[in-house]
Nucleic acid binder design. Sequence first.
RNA 1: GGGGGUGUAGCUCAAUUGGUUAGAGCGCUGCCCUGUCACGGCAGAGGUUACGGGUUCGAGUCCCGCCACUCCCGCCA
Length: 599
Amino acid sequence: MKRTHHCNELRSAHIGQTVTLSGWVHSRRDLGGLIFIDIRDREGRTQTVFDPSDLPAELFECAAALRSECVVSVTGKVRQRPEGTNNVKIPTGEIEVAAGALEVLNMADVLPFPVDDPEVAKTVNEELRLQYRYLDLRRPEMTRNLRLRSKVATATRFFFDEQGFLEVETPTLFKSTPEGAREFLVPARLHPGKFYALPQSPQQFKQILMVAGVEKYFQLARCYRDEDLRADRQPEFTQIDIEMSFIEREDIYALIEELLKRVWKTALNIDIPTPFKRLSFEEALNRYGIDKPDTRYGIELVDFTEEFRASAFKVFSGAIAVGGVVKAINAKGLADATQGQIETMTEYAKSFGAKGLAYIKVEKGEWKSPIVKFFSSAEKAALTEKLKIEEGDLILFAADQWLNACEILGKIRIYCADLLKSQGKLMVPADRFDFLWVVDFPLLAYDKEQNRWFSSHHPFTAPVAADIPLLTTDPKKVRGQHYDIVVNGVELGGGSIRIHRPDVQKTVFEDVLQIPAEMVKARFGYMLEAFRFGAPPHGGIALGFDRLIAILCGTSSIRDVIAFPKTAKGTCLMTESPAPVESKQLRDLHLELRVAKKD
RNA sequence: GGGGGUGUAGCUCAAUUGGUUAGAGCGCUGCCCUGUCACGGCAGAGGUUACGGGUUCGAGUCCCGCCACUCCCGCCA
C-alpha cells in the first residue's frame, strides 16, 4: 500500500507516528519559506507541511512545483499544530504531517473548473461537469451521493435476504413487446433481420419466476426506455424490482413500508412512521389534481359544481351543463401576484388545455376580479366559506370535464406552491417526508384516437375480483389491483397484483385490449402457456432506485446520483456516445443505413 | 415533434438607448513572503461575445437561421 492512513484518520492520538498519506493536492499555500499542502482522498483531507530547514533543497523545490490535483504520496511525522493554528473546520485540524519525503505519483494539468471550492463548483455549468465527470465526481458532494447510493443498495440487499428473497438476474437481451415504452433494439448477428430488445422492466421474467416457484424475487435491475428524458428520467435506470407469490395487496404495502423504514434509517438516521396514508386515485385527483400529490402543503382543490350549476356566469354553468365541474384553489397570501404572474399561470393552464384561468385577488377587503360581477351573493358566500377566504388570498378556478379541471388546477397548485416557497411564504422542512399509497386506479383508460381501451398500468394487472364480469360489459368501471408509492409528490414506484389465470389474461389481451389472437400468441404466448402449468397467485412492485437516492440526497435531478448520466438528448458528453460505426460492423449485422450522413 | 430559459476570458458573472480599446472576482504565469488553511503582496498573460447570415455609419446588445446545455408539454404499457 502506498498509504498507512487515509486523509480523515489522523488525530492527536497519532502524534509522533510516521505515516504515509496518498491522494490529490487539494490546496497549496506557498508562504515562500514554508509550504502547506492539503492532501485530499475519498475520506477527507489532511495538512502536510514542507519546511526547508529540515528538507533537502530538491525535495522542497519539488513541493513548490506541485499544483492543484497532482497525485502525491507524502511520508512524515504526525505532530501537534502550533498553539492557535488549529483548523476547526476539518476533523484533522488539530494535527499536521511534517513531510520528510514526497513522491509525485502524477502531475495534473490546470483544471477546466475548480473542484476544491464547493460554492463555485455547484454553480459550474452542468455541460462542463458531465464532460469532465471524473473531476465532478471528486467533489465531496458527489462522492457523498455515490457513497449513499452504495449504502442503500447494500441495505436493500440485506433487507430482502433477511426476508427470504432471492436476487435473480434476468436477461437484458430480451425481445420486443411494443405495447409499452419505446424500446432500444439490438440487431441479432446470428439471426439476420431479427432483433433483441432491451427490457423496459423485467416484468415478464419476474412473473415467470413466480411460475417457477421462486416465491420471493428481487433484483436491482437495469431498465431501458427509448423515450424523451427529464430531470427524473434517463434512458437507462435502475429499479428495485420485487415479485411475490401467495400474497395480497396488503402484503406488498407492509413489505415496502418496512424496506423504506430501513432505508431512511440507514441513509438519514430518520425514523419514518408506518403504516403510510392511503388515498384513492379519485380522492387524489379531487383534492390535489394529480395522482402523485405532494401533501406537505395544503392549497387543496375545492368543488363548486353544485353552487354554480345555475350561475349567471355562463363559463361556469355552461361547463357544468355539458357534464363538467367547477373547482377552485385558494393560494393563501398570493393576492400580490403581479399581472405578469397571473398571465404566466393562465398561459401555463392553457398549455394543459384550459380555455382560461379565472381568478379573484382579495386585497384591501375587496375582491378584484374580471368575473366577480357575475357572481350572486349566495355564490360569493359559498366561496368565502368553503375556501376560507381572507385578506391577501388568491383564488383560482378551473371549469372543465372532471379529469381536465382537476389536472389543470393540480398543475396550478404546484406552480403557486413553488411561487410561495420562493417568496418565503410557504416553508417545507427539508427533512419532512410524506409517504402515501395511491390505490384504486381504474384498470383501463380509453384512447379516443385509436378508439380502444388500453391498460392504465400494464396488461398483467389483475382486476378487483368482483369486477371481472365487468371487463367485457363495462370496462370503465373495472378497478385494478394497482398501487403507487408516492413521497413528497414524487412517484417512487408502482405495482400490482397480477392476473394468474390464463383465461382472464387472454380475455384482457384479446377482448378488452383488442390485440389480435395471433399477435398475443407471438408476443405473450410463452407466458400464457406457462400459466397453464400451475401459476400461483402473485404480485409485485418496482421502485425507481435513482429517484429514491435523489430524494435521500435532496436533489431534484437523478443525474446527480448516477455516476455517468446522459444529457437531455440522450448523449454522453464524456465518451461522446452514441457514435457512428464502421460499415463492416453494419454488414455483420445485416443492416443498411438510410439516414443522410450528418456531422 | 412543440414551448420556455441559458450561451461573453480556464471558471463564475458584468457591460446604460445600438456608440471609445468588452470589464471584475477566482484561476493561471512570474517575482516576493516561515504558520497558512478562501494565505498575503506586486506585476503580467488571457476574448472569433457558441456558430452562420442580415439590418446599421456602428452590433455582445436588434432581426433571421443554426448548434449545445437545461426545464416543461407530448411521450414514459
